[in-house]
Nucleic acid binder design. Structure first.
Length: 546
RNA sequence: GGCCUCGUAGCUCAGGGGAUAGAGCACAGGUUUCCUAAACCUGGUGUCGCAGGUUCGAAUCCUGCCGAGGCCGCCA
């Protein structure tokens, strides 16, 4: 919420307190077109004897701010509010300063993967998009944000690759990322079908856990090849990370952690393995019976690493729905093992499928690399407008991949439909970019116009756009409090749509009244600021032309 | 079998105690250029899976059932 309205809500809450009502006033958007906002808290008290006094007080407070047209008492207690545009334009800028909060929190964003050795595939896209958006949103409202890609650079997949290289006598000097990507599926297949291979891979995994120097060297070579490839991909997709830590970085913390937990009877033996002593169903397996580590082992050690070396108030794990049990067990264990009482949250998301609703596959049935999806999107846009510069097409392609990913609630599975998502009509990255480009051109053409006016002169269409622009804070709040970027994505579509209506309704060059022109110039500027900031919050970059 | 999601317009999805349940697509017709028409305008749709319950008020909360998907100790 805009800080302006937050202060109002605080004042209103105090009025409720006077009547011993412990509730927070909900200043919501109105569903009725003739109003901007509404307060429904009063309705449930409309049979109480204090109702009239409460309503009177509430209305008095609201009217004293002048943010809205004078509010009328109602019989039922539905308070309908209409913005006082003349007052609010002096207070609302939609810049970061409107929203920055006083109690900044330090938040770690854990991207839970990807694994080295495996190509960055389509399944990784949501983690990247949702993570970047939430990171930007929290940064925008003044939180101290830290991203950690948290590479899957440890454990069985690596052991499988090394086993494969060993069997085939492949030297890492001649290895590049594309070969590595072919090797992993083969290694994984052998691990499942060939028992000798499986035994050796498990042995290698344990040796790695015990820091076998020769294997570590091999591992490091594989990791470097993989990181180089990841960096190229991320650069193309405009992603970056503060930390490139991985599961391997906490390996040395684990023996001590296990020992301490065992000594304090927090973990116990069970069929040779170590499990949490907490009474849970299912049991939480902490190490395997051969002593080697699991996903949860490294995640637990990572918590210790972070609280000791980075420090944080909140930790968000942006990982798909299917791993919810893992995170439930992890969060349970952090408390049960008495590591800390900090806030940990699984930011889960649904599966990305192809336009038929099936899992994304390449033509030969393999996992589809993310770079391939980017290429297809790039080509599609290029075919629509062949005159565009390469950099603009890339930005548009990224807009499509980002916006279409964020427009749906993250928890919902959705279908990626290239034709639909690259269309200029509908809720697409292309549409919102186009509106912004139009505004940008108008701004350039009317640069000589002063952005000052004696009185605000607005048509109905102008008012609707302005009201919507004043609501940025509402959608921002929804997005960061629920960690759901789709509220802002939909908002970006709505203001873009309103801007296009505004654009078509009256031609700037045909208006004679100078206050009306200046009012419109003001609106264009506010729209551009807002659109740019929402795009930042979503992880998109505005294009200059298209 | 146990646990977790989900079921809303022809399709894809918002809305998750508040007033007459919304948007995009698709379909039909119309409007040209301050700016690429890559736009705008006008058209109408719903047993909110089913049945109970809680409430002044339920698509929303609770219970049961039906249906879809996911997860369930030595993968990550």
């Amino acid at each position: 919420m805009n800080n302006l309205f937050k202060e109002l809500i605080d004042l209103l809450n105090k009025e409720f307190e006077k009547f011993h009502l412990d509730e927070s006033v909900q200043l919501n958007l109105s569903k009725m077109p003739e109003f901007d906002m509404q307060i429904n808290n009063l309705v449930k008290h409309n049979k109480a004897d204090f109702f009239n006094n409460l309503q009177k007080n509430i209305i008095e407070v609201i009217n004293s701010t002048n943010f809205f047209q004078p509010v009328e008492e109602t019989e039922l207690g539905f308070l309908n509010l209409v913005f006082n545009h003349n007052v609010l334009i002096k207070q609302i800028t939609n810049k970061k300063s409107d929203f920055v909060n006083d109690n900044s929190q330090k938040i770690i964003f854990d991207y839970g993967g990807p694994n080295i050795g495996k190509p960055l595939h389509v399944g990784h896209m949501r983690t990247l998009n949702i993570g970047r958006s939430l990171y930007n949103i929290h940064s925008f409202i003044g939180n101290d944000v830290i991203s950690d890609i948290h590479l899957g650079d440890w454990g069985m997949p690596i052991a499988q690759i090394i086993t494969y290289l060993e069997n085939e006598s492949i030297n890492t000097d001649s290895l590049d990322s594309s070969q590595l990507e072919i090797i992993y599926p083969k290694a994984s297949e052998q691990y499942k079908s060939n028992n000798e291979f499986k035994v050796r891979a498990q042995e290698i995994n344990k040796l790695l856990n015990n820091n076998d120097s020769e294997l570590l060297e091999l591992w490091r070579a594989i990791k470097n090849i993989s990181i180089k490839n990841l960096e190229e991909n991320f650069s193309l997709l405009n992603h970056s990370f503060d930390y490139w830590l991985g599961e391997s970085d906490v390996n040395e913390l684990i023996p001590e952690m296990i020992e301490s937990l065992y000594k304090n009877k927090k973990i116990i033996e069970d069929s040779g393995a170590l499990i949490s002593a907490e009474n849970t169903d299912p049991k939480i397996l902490i190490t395997k019976s051969d002593g080697s580590y699991l996903y949860i082992t490294t995640d637990l050690a990572t918590v210790l690493y972070r609280q000791n070396n980075i420090g944080y108030d909140k930790s968000y794990y942006i990982v798909d729905n299917r791993q919810s049990l893992h995170f439930q067990q992890l969060f349970d264990s952090i408390k049960f093992f008495e590591f800390n009482n900090l806030h940990h949250e699984h930011i889960s998301y649904g599966t990305l499928n192809d336009s038929d609703g099936n899992p994304f596959r390449t033509r030969d049935g393999g996992t589809k690399p993310l770079s391939e999806l980017f290429e297809e999107t790039y080509e599609y846009i290029k075919n629509i407008n062949n005159d565009l510069e390469d950099s603009a097409i890339k930005q548009l392609a990224n807009s499509v991949l980002t916006f279409s990913d964020l427009i749906t609630n993250r928890k919902t599975d959705y279908k990626f439909d290239l034709e639909k998502f690259t269309s200029v009509n509908g809720k697409t990255g292309i549409y919102v970019q186009y509106a912004q480009v139009r505004a940008r051109k108008l701004q350039q053409n009317i640069v000589q116009q002063k952005n000052k006016f004696e009185t605000l002169v607005l048509s109905e269409i102008d008012k609707r756009l302005l009201s919507q622009l004043f609501m940025f804070g509402h959608f921002l709040e929804q997005s960061f409090s629920l960690n759901e970027p789709h509220h802002l994505a939909n908002y970006l579509y709505d203001i873009s749509n309103s801007f296009n209506q505004f654009y078509e309704y009256e031609k700037l060059t045909e208006i004679e009244d100078s206050d009306h022109i200046s009012s419109k110039v003001y609106l264009i500027n506010l729209f551009l600021t807002t659109s740019k900031n929402v795009m930042f919050c979503l992880g998109m970059r505005p294009v200059e032309k298209m």
